[in-house]
Nucleic acid binder design. Structure first.
Lengths: 219, 219
DNA sequence: AAATATTTTTAGAGTAGTCTAAAATATGTC
DNA sequence: GACATATTTTAGACTACTCTAAAAATATTT
């Protein structure tokens, strides 16, 4: 239906728009996809002609309802494949993204719906990101970053904001994974770094920035 | 590593060479892949420069050892995905091929090796075709076509030569699937058509041509 | 072995995606 | 609000893959 490049651009626009509320700039898409801005302009024209995005020269783009639906279905495919790779094939969470990037472009609604059923309709992927259902609906939940917790409070990790491989490997080293109990022991008043206790066993110091990436529910 | 088109050409050459023993002609590849002969010539040049095939103008091509290895790994990927689709996701045997054609081009040895493990190292795909192991070795077995059987003899279906969707749907209608017991009741001396009994329950007349596509072991 | 038919290759062109460099437009600052 | 800076688009080029039509080579027929 759509080329891999078209799909990548739609997904990039969706993801950038999630954070910034304004129209998505050519440069930001180029940075996201690691391509030249001129290439993005070309693709933008194409997507605009197909009415998948709304585009005014020099003013950035926003997704049309159809474009948005396509992007969400891509995210659905990506995250379901991630669950498959992690849960069924045993890939660690830091390596599922790369493979899912390729698998998500395999075009078949029937395949993805059967995969979802096989996986028992998971609501979150291995990084704790919500998986849209067949209608594009995300299952949201209340969550805090551990940085918001006070000394003495305990959280259970339900997601990570940062998906960088090295960040995830760093968490592995600290025995932090989804489901881990994290108790805040002490907060440094100078730089907001936290002393935390993982699973009641491993003590570690994490920076404010790291803490902000760790999404938890109250234990 | 290699483009989808390169891979498709290598696989086509391998499959055609399996049947005919001589060098593979441009036209036969074009017919196999549903492309123009001129397109095949272009791709042949490219593959020849990469030393994946041996090519002499107007004389057809043969796979080099490297080209052969790539083709076999593709067949491995294709058939493992077919097993996954049929056994884990519940796709019928007549529809797995199409999806596997797309999945086989996802490039990751680690993925395919973990998939193989997850599937418990299957030796045959949903059509009974052997799956090469990680070293490219096929597990062969003694097999007959049911057309070779005499009245009174019984076979168990272990494979089909013909993979056409309509042929497989026709077998579905007759309750014939891998593992089915097929007893030859009578052979027509004029056209070699067979009267067969499926699973001791369903009687059917099959043409000589159909019988030749049904690969069985002795019951 | 010449004429004919078939197969294969070459030539030239089109689509899709990407790039660099230059031009056009928008933005921020004094 | 003019000017410097940053962003975005245009122009032109390149790679990869595909096609049709014509030319070249090979194979077949008589």
């Amino acid at each position: 239906m759509y080329t891999t490049s078209e799909e990548d651009h739609l997904k990039a626009i969706f993801k950038i728009a999630e954070k910034e509320k304004k129209a998505v700039s050519t440069n930001s898409i180029a940075a996201f996809l690691n391509t030249a801005p001129a290439s993005v302009t070309d693709m933008i024209k194409k997507l605009s002609e197909k009415e998948l995005i709304l585009y005014q020269k020099y003013k950035g783009v926003t997704l049309s309802p159809i474009g948005s639906k396509i992007a969400i279905q891509l995210i659905r495919k990506h995250r379901l494949w991630e669950v498959f790779l992690a849960e069924k094939l045993g890939f660690p969470w830091e390596s599922v993204h790369e493979l899912a990037e390729k698998l998500e472009h395999v075009d078949s609604d029937e395949l993805i719906n059967k995969l979802e059923e096989f996986l028992n309709f998971p609501k979150y992927d291995p990084h704790g990101d919500p998986i849209p259902n067949v209608d594009g609906k995300f299952t949201l939940r209340t969550q805090w970053s551990i940085a918001e917790f006070l000394p003495g409070q305990t959280g259970v990790l339900i997601g990570v904001k940062e998906h960088d491989k090295n960040f995830l490997l760093y968490l592995n080293d600290m025995q932090i994974k989804l489901g881990s109990q994290i108790k805040v022991l002490h907060k440094n008043n100078y730089d907001q770094s936290l002393r935390v206790l993982i699973e009641g066993r491993f003590e570690n110091l994490i920076t404010k920035n790291v803490a902000q990436q760790l999404l938890v529910k109250k234990a």
